[in-house]
Amino acid sequence: MNKIKTACLAVVLTSALPLVSNVAYAEENGAGCGVGKVVMEGKSGKDAHVSAAFINMAIHAVVGPIQLFGMTSGTVGCDVTQTVSNDREKERFVASNQDSLITEIAQGNGAHLTSLASLMGVSAEDHSAFFTALQMNYDEIAVSTDVLASVHSIMQSEPRLAGYAS
């Protein structure tokens, strides 16, 4: 009977504690080269998030509740301070927010669109003109393989915005 008691306790420790400890605090999406990589490659998401949590729980069950063990520093093979120059930032921003940008272009408004305007150096009083120009040319942008280039060419053909796109 003592064995059963021990087993009981083991079940408690290996199932309950990880649920709280790991799952509560681990930001388990922060894998590899960072969320950026994971997010941009579309490997994350709610399912992945939850399944990662369950994997972590399983690991916890094996390893113990106090501390998790994992990869070596060699695995994090990329730059941990992902800051880049403004030009590259523009590209990165558009690439990683393409869906939100196209959505907001169609809607003529939004935080991503305002942020793009800011990255392009468009001053606040021209934001509305910028949004209108993009909304009117939605079809062109939506089919474009290079959203940034397409935005550039639309700006150039709009006298009020051409100055920002040089």
Binding site: V80, T81, E89, N97, S115
Partner: peptide, 13 residues
């Protein structure tokens, strides 16, 4: 050992 690390990432991510 699971490592805890600081990362600097754009806030939009």
């Amino acid at each position: 050992g699971f490592y805890g690390r600081f990362m600097v990432l754009p806030y939009y991510l």
